[in-house]
Write a protein that binds this DNA or RNA. Structure first.
Length: 157
DNA sequence: GCCAACGTTGGC
DNA sequence: GCCAACGTTGGC
């Protein structure tokens, strides 16, 4: 069982949006980065858990936990000419991009912010806090996962 | 809105 | 296969 972190811009798709889906489940489309795709394709399994991270917003941070409920399958938005994720090089015979389905498992009691995580020594090796990190799906070590869950229970400062 | 860091593209 | 140019990400 693996742990992950998945980024989303709340302006585009927020935790609330996921909470409002039927069955609180939605496909995670629009991943157009090979490294992130390979993580989904090779290592992301049904039952894995992932942090839902809000990026590119006022308070970037982890806001919830989702569960992978369907493993990697072709991202149909790559075939849709009207989609901003359209990619002419992705065909039905040879789909270039993949997605998984995730279900909202729980909201954290509070937003565990990037700023806060950067200050914590036990999290110093996380890819998320590395300089210039742009990966939208990344693995999280069990130790880090547990530590962040504990942080979420505490009021900051 | 700015801009540093990064990934991708394409000419050679 | 190198690498400059370009587009994108995402914190601030």
């Amino acid at each position: 069982m693996n742990y992950w972190l998945m980024k989303s811009e709340p302006d585009a798709y927020s935790l609330d949006d996921l909470a409002n889906e039927p069955k609180k489940t939605e496909h995670w489309d629009g991943i157009r980065n090979y490294q992130a795709r390979n993580f989904m394709r090779d290592d992301m399994k049904k039952g894995d858990l992932a942090f839902f991270y809000h990026s590119n917003c006022a308070e970037p941070g982890i806001v919830g936990i989702v569960e992978v409920v369907k493993e990697a399958y072709p991202d149909h938005t790559a075939w849709d000419k009207k989609s901003k994720y359209y990619d002419e090089k992705s065909t039905k015979e040879n789909p270039r991009w993949l997605m998984v389905d995730v279900k909202l498992k729980k909201r954290l009691k509070r937003n565990v912010t990037l700023r806060e995580m950067k200050e914590k020594l036990p999290l110093k090796d996380m890819r998320l806090v590395a300089r210039g990190n742009r990966l939208s799906i990344m693995p999280v070590a069990k130790k880090e996962w547990d530590y962040i869950l504990k942080l979420a229970e505490k009021t900051p400062k």
